[in-house]
């Protein structure tokens, strides 16, 4: 099996979209699921969301942000090259309940998670709004694609260079307050700080909120426990029990802390690969 890259293009200065041949993954895959990818010989295995999939063509779309050695190697790939390993689909699919109005909040590369969710919710008959954020205009991704499947898309930038000037969580608060159809579901995917802020916006309003967590993973099958997160006081393995959890129950502080475990190591790995 070779996992060939069929096309590759940059969506933002540090985010690349790869369409990859992986027919086995398309067989049963659903929104909210991810793959585990290996890019370097003898290297790490990393989780990436399945941003889109096409069963007939046997292809999936990965949207990758450069943060360390493995994502850098992936983003260096061009059409015609191949990824060493792609395993999946993994994780539980997003639970799609009939809701009236769902707001999907995507920060940076987390926007990749909300795109398939938006399609599924629209197909389930919900009104779907998306709030997507980035540092500056070039870092807001998938705005056009989301526009085709959502009722509204609200871009936000930290510096005001595009759309709303400020954090996605602030835009969400305003959207909820002014919504003609009351918001009864919020899905959030992005940096931990963002998901935590979103949870604080919806907590007092008691709006069901689901966060797509991104702990460090190894196997993705429940074998190592490296992906453990605390949710409602219970330890869960994000790769099999998640990656989506009730955002009002997640211990975001612990997750933030655990994500720094390999920082020193990764700086070395990046320098070596530079």
């Amino acid at each position: 099996m070779t996992y060939q890259v069929l096309d590759a293009r940059w969506l933002s200065p540090n985010v690349k979209r790869l369409r990859v041949r992986a027919p086995h993954v398309t067989h049963n895959c659903k929104p909210g699921q991810f793959v585990i990818v290996r890019a370097l010989v003898d290297g790490e295995r990393i989780p990436l969301t399945i941003a889109d999939s096409d069963r007939a063509a046997g292809t999936i779309v990965l949207i990758v942000q450069v943060v360390g050695a493995t994502t850098k190697a992936l983003c260096a790939l061009e059409a015609g090259q191949a990824i060493l390993d792609v395993a999946g689909p993994l994780g539980k699919p997003t639970e799609i309940h009939p809701v009236r109005h769902a707001v999907l909040v995507g920060g940076g590369v987390g926007t990749a998670v909300i795109y398939p969710q938006a399609k599924a919710l629209r197909d389930a008959g919900a009104r779907v709004s998306a709030v997507v954020g980035g540092r500056t205009k070039p870092f807001v991704i998938l705005e056009e694609e989301l526009g085709r499947v959502c009722d509204d898309v609200f871009p936000c930038t930290d510096d005001g260079s595009h759309g709303f000037h400020g954090f996605v969580s602030d835009r969400l608060k305003r959207l909820i307050a002014g919504a003609d159809v009351p918001v009864d579901l919020v899905l959030a995917a992005g940096p931990v700080a963002m998901m935590s802020a979103v949870a604080e916006v919806t907590r007092p309003l008691a709006i069901h909120t689901v966060a797509s967590l991104n702990p460090i993973m190894v196997d993705g099958t429940g074998m190592c426990g490296g992906c453990r997160v605390t949710c409602g006081g219970h330890v869960k393995f994000a790769c099999v029990d998640g990656p989506e959890f009730d955002a009002h129950l997640v211990d975001f502080k612990e997750l933030t802390d655990r994500l720094t475990a390999y920082r020193a190591f990764e700086n070395c790995a990046m320098e070596r690969s530079a």
Binding site: V218, G225, G226, A269
Partner: peptide, 24 residues
């Protein structure tokens, strides 16, 4: 867990200084 530690080292070759797999 021993599974994670050993997997990083054996399967993902973290014992080799040239591997990009992190292990503490």
């Amino acid at each position: 867990s021993a599974n994670e530690y050993l997997t990083r080292i054996n399967l993902m070759k973290a014992y080799d200084p040239n591997s990009s797999t992190p292990v503490m």
